[in-house]
C-alpha cells in the first residue's frame, strides 16, 4: 500500500512538473529548430541540428543587444536605489524613536492597496511632461527608486535583530550611522539579497511603464522590444521563440544561482503578510 502511494505521488508530481516546464522547453527547443521542423507533422521534439543562427537572424531584425543593455541598466539602477532607500527608511522605522513613527508607517502601508493604474496616469504627467524625461532610461528608473513594500519587508528583518544590541551600542557611544552599517546591514544580508533579487526580476519584467515612457528603438527594454518584435516577426515562430529565450535566459540563470533566496523570500513574504 505504501509503495502504491509512493508511485502515485511520483507520477502526479512528474506529470505536474512536465506541465509547469513545458512552455520553457517548447520555447527553448523551438528557438533551435528550422521553420519546417517547428511546424512539422509529426511533431519534431528535439532540434537536430540546432539552429543557432535563429538567434543571429533575430538580432538582425531587432537590436536585442541594445534592449538587453538597457534592461540591465534600468534593473541595476532601480535595484541599487531601492536597496539604499529601503535600508535607510527601514532602519528609521525599526530603531529610531521619533514622533509620528507608527502613524507614518501605517499610512505608507495602507497605500499598498492602491492599484498602480491610478498612480501611472499622474506619474506619466510628472515624468514625461514636468520632468521632461520622455524617452530616457532615467524615466524608467526614477519612479521606482523607493518601494514601500520592500521597506516593510526589510523592517521586519531589522526588527528580528535584538534591540539589546542597539541599546548596548548606544551605551558604548556608537553612532546610529556606524551601527546601521556595521551591525544591521551585515545581519540582514540575506534579506537584502532577497529584496534585491525580487526588485531586479520585477524591473526586468516591467512592461506598462517602459511602454508608455519610451518611443525610440534605442531606449527600449527587452519586454517592449519583444512586444514590437512579435508584431513584426509574424509567423516566424522559430525567431519568436529565440527572442523569447533571450528575454528569459538571464532569469533562468538568476534562478539557478539564487533559488534559495528567491524561494525563501516568497515563502516568508507569503507567511508574514
Amino acid at each position: 500500500m505504501k509503495n502504491v502511494y509512493k508511485i502515485i505521488t511520483y507520477i502526479l508530481l512528474a506529470a505536474g512538473a512536465v506541465i509547469m516546464l513545458f512552455p520553457f522547453f517548447w520555447m527553448i527547443t523551438g528557438s533551435l529548430k528550422t521553420y519546417n521542423q517547428i511546424t512539422a507533422t509529426p511533431i519534431v521534439w528535439w532540434p537536430v541540428p540546432a539552429q543557432w543562427n535563429n538567434y543571429t537572424t533575430a538580432l538582425e531584425y531587432a537590436p536585442f543587444d541594445i534592449y538587453f543593455i538597457n534592461t540591465v541598466i534600468v534593473s541595476v539602477g532601480t535595484t541599487v536605489s531601492v536597496l539604499i532607500t529601503s535600508i535607510f527608511a527601514a532602519f528609521a522605522f525599526s530603531r529610531l524613536k521619533f514622533r509620528g513613527r507608527d502613524t507614518i508607517f501605517s499610512i505608507l502601508l495602507s497605500t499598498l492597496m492602491i492599484p498602480s493604474q491610478i498612480l501611472i496616469i499622474t506619474n506619466y504627467v510628472t515624468v514625461a511632461v514636468r520632468m521632461q524625461l520622455m524617452d530616457t532610461l532615467l524615466a524608467l528608473i526614477i519612479p521606482f527608486t523607493a518601494s514601500i513594500f520592500y521597506i516593510y519587508l526589510l523592517r521586519e528583518f531589522f526588527n528580528q535583530i535584538p534591540e539589546q544590541l542597539y541599546l548596548a551600542a548606544k551605551v558604548d557611544g556608537t553612532s546610529d550611522w556606524r551601527y546601521l552599517w556595521k551591525i544591521m546591514v551585515p545581519n540582514a544580508k540575506n534579506a537584502l539579497i532577497t529584496i534585491g533579487l525580487f526588485n531586479f526580476i520585477a524591473s526586468w519584467n516591467a512592461y506598462i511603464w517602459p511602454l508608455l515612457l519610451t518611443n525610440s528603438e534605442s531606449k527600449r527594454v527587452l519586454s517592449i522590444g519583444l512586444k514590437y518584435f512579435s508584431g513584426e516577426a509574424g509567423t516566424d515562430y522559430e525567431l519568436l521563440m529565440a527572442a523569447g529565450t533571450i528575454v528569459i535566459a538571464p532569469l533562468l540563470v538568476i534562478y539557478l544561482f539564487f533559488r534559495r533566496y528567491i524561494v525563501e523570500g516568497v515563502a516568508r513574504s507569503g507567511i508574514k503578510g
Binding site: M20, L21, P23, F24, M27, M241, I248
Partner: peptide, 17 residues
Amino acid sequence: FLPYITNLIAIGLAFKF
C-alpha cells in the same frame, strides 16, 4: 518554482505557439 520568475510577455509567446 521555476515559473515564478517568468517574463509573461516572453513565455506568452510560447503559450501563443
